[in-house]
């Protein structure tokens, strides 16, 4: 189809005409041109057909999906839970108590740790005869002092 010899209508103008985005004055001028230019009418018709054939994608969200997404959003809007200081302080106190009990020196004969500690100390002394000798001397000295007090 032939365009008018003086036809300078651009594709963009036809597009804006289709979307009704031309200024009133330009729209009026193009409307007048279209009456006289079959080629531009054809171009506009093709443009409209192309655009009309484009689909409009749509998602159908079920009530359950809306509920699930809403719940996720609601969960994310809630403030983050504050650290439970009372819980941590209790745990720290318990740990400190356990450590202090473990480090406490054994007092009774049932304390296996104490028995083991004393036994190993005695073994150490047995391995050092000079120390044993000195202890004997000290014991003798104590005995002499006691006898002196009695006498």
């Amino acid at each position: 189809m032939k365009r008018q010899p003086d036809c300078t209508i651009k594709e963009e103008s036809l597009l804006l005409f289709h979307y009704r985005e031309l200024a009133p004055k330009e729209r009026l001028a193009l409307t007048e041109h279209l009456r006289q230019c079959p080629a531009c009418r054809q171009r506009l018709a093709e443009l409209k057909n192309s655009l009309a054939s484009l689909p409009r994608p749509t998602l159908e969200l079920s009530a359950a999906e809306v509920g699930w997404l809403s719940a996720r959003i609601a969960a994310r809007t809630r403030p983050a839970p504050r650290p439970r200081f009372w819980l941590w302080s209790g745990a720290v106190a318990t740990a400190a108590l356990v450590v202090s009990l473990a480090a406490w020196p054994p007092t009774g004969p049932d304390s296996r740790l104490g028995v083991m500690g004393r036994t190993s100390g005695e073994i150490g002394m047995v391995e050092d005869p000079e120390l044993l000798q000195n202890m004997d001397l000290l014991q003798n000295l104590d005995l002499l002092q006691e006898l002196k007090q009695v006498g």
Binding site: L59, G67, L69
Partner: peptide, 10 residues
């Protein structure tokens, strides 16, 4: 959220 969610997602 429920009122606007379908439109926003679309």
């Amino acid at each position: 959220v429920r009122d606007h969610l379908p439109r926003v997602v679309n």
